[in-house]
Nucleic acid binder design. Structure first.
Lengths: 209, 209
DNA sequence: GTTTTTGCACTGACCAGTCAGTTCAAATTC
DNA sequence: GAATTTGAACTGACTGGTCAGTGCAAAAAC
């Protein structure tokens, strides 16, 4: 069985509808939040009947959870790819972190709505999809932690750094700087933002040059 | 005329009720989001009848907006105080940034729910309180920008740094690291977190020691 | 002929906001 | 100082509207 046609991801009609629904849901939920977004709105924006939403997803929350998994999958793949490319090209671990910062910015540039929604939901408690979020967060942060640990092991980073905390802080720095960029200074170029963050990472703000 | 009793701030019954409502609303909205939180829940948690909420605030959104203003007022006061104290004691601008990082962490330690809610709502568009948020965000970031600008003027920081972007990144770094601390590693001490962020700020992660 | 989508009417729960009425402490009157 | 009035603060049942989710017959796509 397997209809099969495209390599991975499956290009059935069903898949195309689900994709349209993801796209509609992500912008609406980023703008308004999950509870303030109605299923009717999502269907309308996707150009699809309401019944179709329920034919494709068990419920509104399930649609949202799958959307989260889908988006974070794209992000981690992109981060990991950046780290590996740097390694292949013989770059240092700082270079790898720098490349990941850029990859993060590129991702946010392409999917600002998803990022917004992710940040808004990440630290909530008591919500149905909390466990999904935990898993998905760990996936992303783990990529950064791996690079930091390798750097410490290889003597490039100080032994004193706190890997989980530093990874979280780095991710936060990129996330918040990028959201601010998109919301409040959209005229700035990606290179500007990357340069500012790079400088901060390498301590070229205070003291050492 | 005028019942008058306490000096400033007003210690009327009304004020006490509003305070209870703020406290109830902040935790509920942090946990569930604005739209998912009902006015009945807020009233119940505050130990007050629903009508009282509407006697004290024009609407659910107005309650929320005043809550935001109230909370950010506390934060900026604390940040500014930290910067001024450092200046008074003859510290450098890096010392001032470091003190502000600590002040931020202390604030988040004390009011985690408020911080959570602030981050969750900050980058949303199309919401009634968007303009309130913009104003309130600028107040907080401006304190950091001022210190950076002074540092550049005094030759302590590189002329090349992008003040608004760097300020946003620093705020984001603290915000996200702190929320992660509270949500995922609450056993860590404030000093641990402060040390990790301090190290990052001073570039003692990569290269220069 | 099977899978997927449509369109639409319907239900039942939930919820923001309202309003007529209650409470009570302080002010006023006698 | 007891009796009465006042009004700010509070109450909670009620209303009108909204929305997630259902059911289903017919059409379209494959």
């Amino acid at each position: 069985m397997e209809s099969s046609s495209a390599a991975s991801g499956g290009s059935t009609r069903r898949e195309a509808t689900r994709q349209k629904l993801y796209e509609a849901a992500v912008t609406l939920i980023a703008e308004q939040g999950f509870s303030a977004t109605t299923v009717d709105e999502i269907a309308e924006r996707a150009g699809v009947a309401k019944g179709t939403v329920y034919y494709n997803f068990a419920s509104k929350s399930v649609l949202f959870e799958e959307l989260l998994r889908h988006g974070v999958g794209l992000l981690t793949a992109s981060l990991r790819e950046a780290a590996e490319r740097t390694a292949r090209e013989g770059g240092s671990k700082v270079d790898a972190l720098d490349a990941m910062i850029r990859a993060g910015l590129v991702f946010i540039d392409r999917y600002p709505a998803f990022t917004q929604l992710y940040v808004a939901e990440l630290w909530r408690t008591n919500r149905a999809w909390q466990s999904t979020l935990m898993v998905v967060r760990q996936q992303a942060v783990a990529v950064v932690e791996d690079v930091l640990r390798d750097g410490v092991a290889g003597g490039e980073f100080s032994e004193e750094i706190d890997v989980p905390l530093t990874a979280a802080a780095l991710v936060g720095m990129v996330l918040v700087a990028a959201l601010d960029w998109k919301s409040f200074q959209p005229e700035r170029s990606l290179d500007d933002v990357h340069a500012a963050l790079s400088r901060l990472l390498q301590g070229r703000v205070s003291g050492c040059r």
